[in-house]
Amino acid sequence: MSEKKSELAKAAPLTISSRPLILKHEISVARVKRFWDGLEEGKVYATRCKKCGKLYYPPRNDCSQCLASDVEWVALSNEGIIETFTVSHLKPQGFEHYKEPYIIAIVRTLEGAKVMGWLEGVSPEKVSIGLVGQRVRITTTVKPDGYPAIVFKLAEEERKVER
């Protein structure tokens, strides 16, 4: 052990920089295009297998239950219940330009689909466990950086604004 410690002490931290590698993928979403178009229309789409009736969210072109590849597109209801959430202060590369912490939530729609998105209109500093079970409206948006987002807003808050 003491021998190891002295070995470690000998090697002072020293680094050299690698040549950078930039990865940007072109993602082939042709078979789930309806979903990505839907986000621009304010709708979240799921698929349903025409053969066995299984509902899929995230949407998919092929049924893993009966192996059929014949699905119909279903626009999910714009209402749901918060199942869980977190306020992310840590921002991974690609999200560093978002200034405020964002609230990631999983919402169960009336159809039973579970949708992940951002809860907006709630102060990140004022969240509590009581948000679990709250009703939300489900909308979509395109952020200023051009990336789409699924957005939840507390149903109560929306009503207040309408009044």
Binding site: I27, P58, E83, T84, F85, T86, V87, S88, L90, K91, P92, G94, F95, Y98, Y102, I104, I106, M116, G117, W118, I129, V132, G133, Y147, P148, A149, I150
Partner: peptide
């Protein structure tokens, strides 16, 4: 595709989603 791209998930965020649900 279905989670990080739109929601900016990370491992601490994933386990925080468990923590919130467990606390609730």
């Amino acid at each position: 595709l279905w989670e990080f791209h739109m929601s900016g998930t990370s491992f601490v965020a994933y386990y925080a989603l468990f923590a919130t649900a467990h606390m609730a």
